[in-house]
Design a protein around this nucleic acid. Structure first.
Length: 211
DNA sequence: CTCCCGATAT
DNA sequence: ATATCAGGAG
């Protein structure tokens, strides 16, 4: 199947219909909590992150109190999320930066977010989009996989896919579409065993194994 | 490119 | 047993 612009529009239309109202599964109550939750979510399920952050924020609700608890305690607190040593190190360094340079607040500027330790392009885009309501498309493992399978946007790197998606999707839908793709990746177009037989996008998917 | 890493699904 | 989970740093 050749995926024309027309077909991409149809893919986006269907995604918007089935995943209308999709929002993050991560639980957070302010930009700081979202930032920490997203850092923790690398190679970890959101469900597990939510259990961890609920416990963590009850003890340390802001940057200064995380600094105060110390690196060893932080490591133990987030252990269940995996990659815990590097995550603890990055969270600690990020909290110091927030306190020292931004009065304990999370900066809104994308490039400033990117400079925070442990914050890469994907995390910066999520915070920018979700916490500060700016149009952005964070390309995580799901968005990357689904975009390539649909050929909605193709590329070897998340950056390439991100740029392809920005061309294929109107700007006002960027943030929503980002969530549509994630939900589709979780519910239907799974990494290991995609459920093509029950996929509403089967007709417009070049990777569909059925028919 | 490799390494970090526990929990979970298959 | 193994692949995968809202990645990022060196």
């Amino acid at each position: 199947m050749r995926v024309t612009k027309k077909i991409k529009e149809k893919q986006i239309e269907i995604l918007g219909q089935i995943y209308a109202g999709a929002k993050p599964e991560l639980v957070y109550s302010n930009p700081f909590e979202l930032l920490i939750a997203v850092i923790l979510s690398a190679q970890c399920t959101d469900k597990r992150v939510n259990v961890t952050t609920a416990r963590l924020f009850a003890k340390a609700p802001d940057a200064q109190s995380i600094i105060d608890m110390g690196i060893d305690a932080l490591e133990q607190e987030i252990r269940d999320c995996g990659l815990f040593r590097s995550k603890a190190k990055n969270i600690m360094a990020t909290c110091r930066t927030l306190v020292e340079e931004f009065d304990g607040e999370v900066p809104e500027d994308f490039d400033t977010l990117l400079k925070l330790p442990g914050v890469g392009r994907k995390t910066a885009n999520v915070v920018s989009s979700v916490a500060f309501n700016r149009p952005a498309i964070a390309v995580d493992t799901h968005v990357f996989r689904i975009s390539n399978r649909l050929k909605l946007a193709t590329g070897e790197t998340p950056m390439e896919v991100e740029q392809g998606l920005m061309k294929a999707i109107p700007k006002e839908k960027w943030s929503d579409a980002h969530h549509w793709l994630i939900w589709h990746g979780r519910k239907i177009c799974k990494a290991r065993k995609p459920l093509c037989a029950e996929c509403p996008l089967a007709e417009v998917c070049p990777s569909n194994e059925m028919k």
